[in-house]
């Protein structure tokens, strides 16, 4: 039996220390080892010049194309302004009960909102959004338990308000599905 792993795929993303921390955290949160894995992704194909944004659904498609056999989940990490056609932007996207998810640091940075750079805040937001999107791949819906990482966030302030952890109910679901 092959040991499953979470693949963290950088997409034009070069902050390796951030990715290392992310892998370390995800390994603990999901109980599956997480590794950085490079994969060629063509971001120009998903760029929408009218919106000056990148279509996250198309990126996700490329990301999950021909997954490694030992991939429990594949998480794409980028620093691009992502969108889905109906919405003005998204922090990330996931396949509900699927294999892939994607998350962007573009709107997680204070600088985007005209604030001072804060690497600690960025790290925390990335961990939360990555855990949240991977939570969807394990079949979790948005959670109404205050503080749970699976609560819906439409503003970066919402992300800051919630914890990096699953609530007890969501954790039970993830545990049962990981096994």
């Amino acid at each position: 039996m092959i040991d499953k792993r979470i693949y963290v795929v950088p997409i034009e993303f070069y902050d390796l220390s951030l990715l290392d921390s992310l892998c370390f955290y995800l390994s603990n949160a999901f109980g599956i080892p997480a590794y950085i894995e490079n994969k060629p992704i063509n971001i120009n194909r998903v760029f929408d010049p009218l919106r000056n944004q990148y279509n996250s659904s198309y990126l996700l498609k490329q990301l999950i194309n021909k997954p490694p056999k030992d991939a429990a989940r594949i998480l794409g990490v980028c620093n691009l302004d992502l969108f889905i056609p109906i919405l003005t932007f998204v922090f990330g996207e996931a396949q509900l009960e699927g294999i892939g998810a994607i998350v962007s640091t573009y709107r997680l940075k204070n600088e985007f909102y005209g604030g001072q750079s804060d690497s600690h805040a960025l790290m925390e937001r990335l961990l939360k959004e990555a855990t949240h999107e991977l939570g969807h791949t394990y079949g979790l819906y948005h959670c109404h338990n205050s503080g749970c990482v699976m609560t819906s966030s439409t503003y970066v302030e919402d992300i800051d308000e919630k914890s990096v952890l699953f609530c007890r109910e969501c954790e039970e679901v993830v545990k049962s599905r990981v096994q």
Binding site: S57, I84, P85, I86, E93, A94, L96, Y141
Partner: peptide, 13 residues
């Protein structure tokens, strides 16, 4: 694309 993105958005809720 609109149907799909809205479907996913509401499904996760």
């Amino acid at each position: 694309s609109v149907r799909d993105s809205l479907f996913k958005w509401f499904k996760t809720d």
